[in-house]
Design a protein around this nucleic acid. Structure first.
Lengths: 202, 202
DNA sequence: CAAATAACAGACCAACTGGTTTGTTCGTTT
DNA sequence: AAACGAACAAACCAGTTGGTCTGTTATTTG
């Protein structure tokens, strides 16, 4: 343990903090517990981060943001016809979600609901991340318009925002009902909603 | 202040605690702050409630549950054709929602997201309340089937659960974006979704 | 290679927090 | 009217928590 590796130490703190925040919320997360699990001391923590709050900001930027990107945004690149492909993506996504997500829900939305009204630093950072998510969806719908898969008068941004609200809402309910099988019922309703985007037949 | 009124004292504690929990979450709510705002002392608090947690349980049962009933469940009684009337109800609801709700979101869902995974006492109580909400919606849809307003093969419970998830999801996003005008865009998408319940034309 | 600095370890602390204890007063019962 | 329990007031407490301070060691720089 005598060998130093500041990048690894920092990353270790971030990862552990991410798990603790996900499990207990920001207010419920304890710095001492992160330290205990990381096998580090206060000195290491406050060398790398100015405060508990700044650690959480870093978790948001360096853990949650990249996770969202790899899990939700990058898979969108494969989608041509969202009405057909989005439900498929949701299904394959649901099958390989780790237990911690089923139990504690979406790390981003958890933090959003807990801290948005408490601390504007959280709110702004979270808002930006949500915006990028919404935009990623909107791009898919704009492409789908060109492909003739959906109506040209669809408000891509509004539909994207609505879809994300809907996803977060479903994930939130699961946390209370604790039955992961509900996911199937939920994304089949999402599929139904998506069909309303189709061009009118003639 | 010499006149005693235990019922009023208890109610006072409950109301203040409700506001504080709504504003800061359960973990962020401070017993001392509730006492300060209530103009009461520790003795009064721990005479009426066994612990901070039991106070929150009481808030759930005696404040949040009745509020949900009057705001969301009772208005459902006036609905015959949900595809037409639910969006109207949402609109009129949106216009008379107090600022605290716009800022802090749904008290029930906040508590659900924060505490469901932390404390099974919370989770169970919240689950029961959600169930009653879902059932109230389902009754509306079952009635609508008889009236021929929606398809007979609609899964009332699944649609109800989905609708509530969707509402909570929308409210959650507002908290981050802090623009109450988004509500209009949101419930117009809800209206769109509801049209999929209509019987097929022939 | 020496000096400066980054990267920690670990003891320490003040403020806070939920909860307890003791005592007092009001209201009701007998 | 005496007794008794409910309804508080208020001081007190022990454990927790985020954060600081001092010291030590590894690493880089001149």
């Amino acid at each position: 343990m005598t060998a130093r590796n500041p990048q690894q130490t920092r990353e270790r703190l971030l990862q552990t903090a991410f798990q603790e925040i996900h499990a207990h919320g920001f207010q419920g997360m304890r710095v001492d517990e992160v330290l205990r699990r990381s096998g580090l001391q206060k000195g290491a923590f406050y060398h790398h981060f100015g405060s508990k709050t700044e650690l959480a900001y870093a978790v948001l930027e360096e853990q949650i943001k990249p996770l969202l990107k790899s899990v939700w945004i990058e898979p969108l690149a494969d989608i041509n016809d969202p009405v057909r492909d989005l439900p498929k993506m949701l299904e394959s996504l649901g099958s390989r979600i780790p237990d911690s997500m089923h139990k504690h829900g979406c790390p981003l939305n958890n933090l959003a609901q807990e801290m948005a009204a408490q601390d504007d630093g959280f709110r702004q950072r979270i808002s930006v991340i949500f915006e990028s998510w919404i935009n990623a969806f909107a791009v898919v719908f704009e492409q789908a318009k060109k492909g003739g898969y959906i109506r040209n008068n669809v408000d891509s941004l509004a539909v994207s925002r609505f879809l994300i609200a809907l996803l977060e809402g479903c994930i939130g309910i699961f946390k209370v009902e604790q039955s992961p099988k509900q996911w199937a019922a939920c994304h089949s309703e999402i599929a139904v909603y998506l069909t309303t985007l189709r061009p009118v037949e003639n």
